[in-house]
Design a protein around this nucleic acid. Structure first.
Lengths: 211, 211
DNA sequence: GCCTTTATCTTTACACTGTCAGGATTGGTG
DNA sequence: CACCAATCCTGACAGTGTAAAGATAAAGGC
């Protein structure tokens, strides 16, 4: 039963999932700032007020979409990690590349996750997904023997590259062929790795949770 | 004749500047995604269609605001550079700190510059201001003897920190007192510096003003 | 089986938004 | 002084988010 099957008048069956799918497509096509709730409803073949019942308002829909987005975000990193060597350093590089993969592959969704003020981070699902993403990074850095300051360094580097590339900046890197670009990104990511600055120093950043 | 002089019915005198000022305030209060052109007009005490004559449409207004924003962005860096030592390394650190100052001081404007799809980058003024900002960074890196890859590294690190902090992430760093936070940021920025690859060197920011 | 309850979706309505067309007002120029 | 061009306003239209109330289908009790 497709979305535009005229038979289903009421009780779509799985409207919530269908709306999330339509919302993601709308987000990719129109961007975060031109996102329209009624347009999402139209794409799902449903009345314009139908989403309200499942998500409350637009913010609720985007929040749910972001929670799902964080899982895809982690999946993108996991995909890289699976094809990388098992040692912690290689795993950390792979995670960084997955981070960038996600940002370049779904720039609008990426910006929703990290640069939108239309998300409700008190939402349980979003909060869980978001902290899960951070903990994954922190654990990986710990595996390499790095401190939380190292985690911040790795995060900032990966995020900076991802955000700039997703927004069309860093053109010198953007125009490189896939192979060469990946080499540059790897060299940039490894610059901030814990092993690069030898010597155990006190971690100036307290180990509280961060999201 | 001030801006809120009720006498001025027509011919505001400097409506373009007044609208940009109102737009910046609206941006700071409501964020990029809830930005409203009519609200800007109301704040400037003018009819809802008045902005059209000066900026065309909303995109035009935001584009002009972004062009001005890039100048403020450079000014924030210059303010730091002026109070820093003259050597290229210290200047580069200062620029990075100014980058972060700007992002944290005006997060909405920062996001407009680097993460909005409502800007017209074919606009001459915006293009000029934007490339000027990039060239400033590239020149500074060249002063330290760095390559273009080094410039990308410095940019990504500064931008990653700025964007994450502006969006409320990296809370462990965010909650630190001004003094300690700046120390951490400096140590993170210097990690990716060209000279960092040449082994232990003197702290490039040892004599930086710490106000 | 039938009737009631509940979840789901629709219809209707309202205030708000961006943008366009046309009209009003003013400062400057001949 | 009369005209012109720049500037700003009024009015209109389609589109948006959200709330209220109604319609329909599925589920559960008898």
């Amino acid at each position: 039963m497709t979305a535009d099957d005229p038979r289903r008048a009421y009780h779509h069956g799985d409207l919530r999932a269908a709306l999330l799918l339509a919302a993601e497509a709308e987000l990719a096509e129109r961007g975060v700032e031109a996102f329209s709730l009624r347009q999402v409803a139209r794409r799902a073949g449903v009345s314009h007020a139908a989403p309200a019942h499942h998500f409350g308002d637009t913010r609720g829909l985007l929040t749910a979409l972001a929670a799902e987005g964080f899982h895809r975000f982690l999946a993108a990193q996991a995909a890289r990690e699976m094809r990388a060597a098992a040692d912690p350093q290689a795993q950390l590089v792979a995670a960084g590349l997955g981070y960038i993969d996600f940002a370049m592959g779904r720039p609008a969704l990426f910006r929703l996750l990290f640069g939108s003020d239309r998300l409700d981070f008190t939402d349980a699902a979003l909060d869980a997904a978001s902290t899960e993403a951070y903990l994954h990074l922190r654990d990986q850095v710990q595996m390499t023997g790095g401190t939380e300051t190292d985690a911040a360094a790795v995060w900032a580097m990966a995020h900076g590259l991802a955000d700039l590339l997703a927004n069309g900046r860093l053109k010198p890197i953007l125009v490189l062929p896939q192979e060469a670009r990946e080499g540059v990104l790897i060299s940039l990511l490894t610059r901030v790795f814990p092993a690069a600055n030898l010597g155990p120093t006190a971690d100036p950043v307290s180990d509280t949770d961060q999201t």
